[in-house]
């Protein structure tokens, strides 16, 4: 049976503790090339410094949608628990064990260029529920991550919303 997770999670939201992660490597050309190779993206502003400069940039730029890439957890990093993980754990323990990603909203203040070193600040922003959804009863939880550069200037933000739910009876089928 499910219990109300909102009290505990709202406490985390008001405490507003951020998980801070500093990118191991600066934004760099080899990774931008590698990313474009994987995606089949041939936009010359990502690959050719001269075209990038003609387009008004100081160097090649990273595809804006790659904002998250630079601060991804390295496989060898020790696991550090954060309030986001705690909130997810509370939802799971409250009887909403299934999860689907719902939305991603990214906003970019400027293009990233090689040499930029990003720090990500991630926290739980909001919780909505319980709501009846097509998958079952659940809660929508939104995290906010702000990305700042080496001069402590905001370069982008990301909001990420997941739905944690109790599968509706007769709807056990997985459709992650």
């Amino acid at each position: 049976m499910s219990v109300d997770p909102s009290l505990e999670i709202n406490e985390l939201i008001s405490a507003s503790h951020e998980r801070v992660s500093i990118a191991r490597d600066p934004v760099n050309r080899p990774m931008i090339h590698h990313l474009c190779d994987a995606m089949g993206d041939a936009n010359p502003i990502y690959l050719d410094p001269e075209v990038a400069r003609n387009a008004g940039h100081s160097d090649v730029v990273a595809p804006p949608a790659a904002l998250q890439v630079w601060n991804m957890t390295n496989p060898s990093d020790p696991e550090i628990s954060s309030d986001v993980d705690r909130a997810y754990g509370i939802l799971e323990a409250s009887g909403y064990p299934k999860v689907v990603a719902v939305n991603s909203e990214q906003e970019y203040e400027r293009h990233l260029v090689p040499g930029d070193v990003l720090t990500a600040y991630e926290k739980v922003e909001s919780l909505k529920g319980p709501k009846q959804t097509g998958l079952g009863e659940g809660y929508f939880i939104t995290t906010l991550t702000e990305y700042k550069d080496q001069n402590d200037q905001l370069v982008g933000t990301m909001r990420f919303r997941t739905l944690w739910y109790t599968p509706a009876v007769g709807q056990e089928q997985d459709n992650d």
């Binding site: 990313l35 936009n43 010359p44 502003i45 595809p63 804006p64 939305n103 991603s104 909203e105 906003e107």
Partner: peptide
């Protein structure tokens, strides 16, 4: 993964806009 989806959306839009286009926001529902 979602990052690839975002990057493919980025590619689709920038193939349309050309090198002068500057993406400011990508809001997607999965």
């Amino acid at each position: 993964n979602i990052l690839t989806t975002n990057c493919l959306v980025n590619r689709y839009v920038s193939e349309f806009s050309g090198p002068l286009g500057r993406i400011k926001k990508i809001n997607i529902r999965l």
